[in-house]
Structures are given as structure tokens and as C-alpha cells.
Design a protein around this nucleic acid. Structure first.
Lengths: 104, 104
DNA sequence: CAAACATCTTTACATAACTAGAAATATAGT
DNA sequence: ACTATATTTCTAGTTATGTAAAGATGTTTG
């Protein structure tokens, strides 16, 4: 898939109040991650709603899930996070070359 | 407005294929910015569609517009961009303190 | 082992928000 | 007036959101 498209996908996942809060909680949790119950307790919301949001983040590649017994641990994929952020600011201010001749 | 909410708003604006492409073009253009016509030429799309997307970016605070004669110059607000990115990675891995006692 | 429990996800669906683009409008220069 | 540049309005179609209810999956207990 096109990089622009996959980054847009990731940013869209983060572009929601609840999901951004979930993601930030996981960023703060770091490598250890948090299981779904912990997140649900911290950010009060129905389990099914939370599951949907987590799925968005997982689909976007920002979060990885791992089953541990009957809980599921959620961790940020820090590489993907970094790449997403980098893409945004990449080639900052290099000066675009327009094909137009009369560009001011 | 809540910081989480305003950052989510910005990320939502960037979370769209066309808008991300527009934004990146403007990031590359740097301080000088680009007028609407230039953008339309670079990323082929109907003028009204482009205007809608630009408005999203402006509403989110990521882009600032300035009229120059009959053209309108669009520039990235690099401060807002920086704050948006920083918010995402802030407090990375500090280890969340859950109110629960039994946190593993 | 089977029934009960714990933890999460999926399905279903109503409501709301977003997207795209043509047509109409606004604004500025010639 | 006429042309150039860009936005706003309108509308149809699409996609996202939230939550209850049902389904999975894994553990514990009698």
C-alpha cells in the first residue's frame, strides 16, 4: 500500500478523542502495555466500544495485541509511531518544485 | 478546549489521503507556502473539493491562509504541527499509575 | 469433566458525520 | 463589464460511531 495512504490510515485512527486517549495511555505505559480491562477502567466506556476503538488502532498498525491467558495485552508499536510522525515532517521546507513555469 | 480534543481534531484532519498529501506538499513548500492554484495543479482534484479539504486543515489550525491579491497563500503553522506531534509521544514510557491495587 | 465465571470480540443496527463535486457566489484584478 | 481565483451551498452517497446483545476463548471450581 501507498505510504501516504497507510500513514493517513494511522492518523485517522488517532484522530478521534477516545482513540487518542487510549493511544496516549498506551504510550505512557510503554513496553509493558496494558490489558483491555486496565484501559476500560482508566477510560470509562463500554467494553464493546473500547474493543472497536482498539481494533481501529490495531488495524492501523499502531497497536499490537497479545493474548495472555484470558486477558489481552495491548502495546504501542513504537516503530510505526515513529514512522508515522516522521512522515508528517519529512522533507520539511525543501521547497517544492512545481512543474509550472510561472511559479512565483 | 481540551488539548486531547484539539490534537485529535488536527490528527483527524491529517487522517485522510488527500488532506495528508496537501499537508505534506505544504510542509515541503516551507515558509513560502503555496497558493490554491498551485496545489490544485500538483494534486489533481476539483477546486471545490480542494477548498473543502483546505478548510478542514485551516479549522484544525494546521494551515494558515493569507490573501495575496486574488490568490490565497496557504502555509503550515509549524508550531501547531510540532505541538501535535509532541502530544502523541509525550510522557512516553513513564509507566502509568492505575488506580487499581491489583495491577500486575 | 461440566458448569460457572472472567475477559474480550463480533454482530447488528440506528444515528450522525464525512466526502465529493457541480453549480452558484464572492472577491480581486484588468 | 469581464476574467481569474477561490469559497460556499446543496445534495447524494458513503463511512464512522456507540452500544446492547450474542458469541469466543480461557480459567476455575464443584
Amino acid at each position: 500500500m501507498d505510504t501516504n495512504t497507510s500513514v493517513a490510515h494511522a492518523l485517522a485512527a488517532l484522530g478521534h478523542d477516545a482513540r487518542l486517549a487510549i493511544f496516549r495511555l498506551l504510550v505512557r505505559a510503554g513496553h509493558d502495555g496494558l490489558n483491555v480491562g486496565d484501559i476500560a477502567q482508566e477510560l470509562t466506556m463500554p467494553a464493546s466500544t473500547l474493543a472497536h476503538h482498539l481494533k481501529s488502532l490495531v488495524d492501523a498498525g499502531l497497536v499490537v495485541q497479545e493474548r495472555m491467558g484470558r486477558q489481552i495485552v495491548n502495546r504501542v508499536d513504537f516503530d510505526v509511531m515513529q514512522q508515522t510522525v516522521s512522515f508528517l515532517t519529512a522533507e520539511c521546507c525543501v521547497g517544492v518544485k512545481l512543474t509550472r513555469d510561472d511559479a512565483a
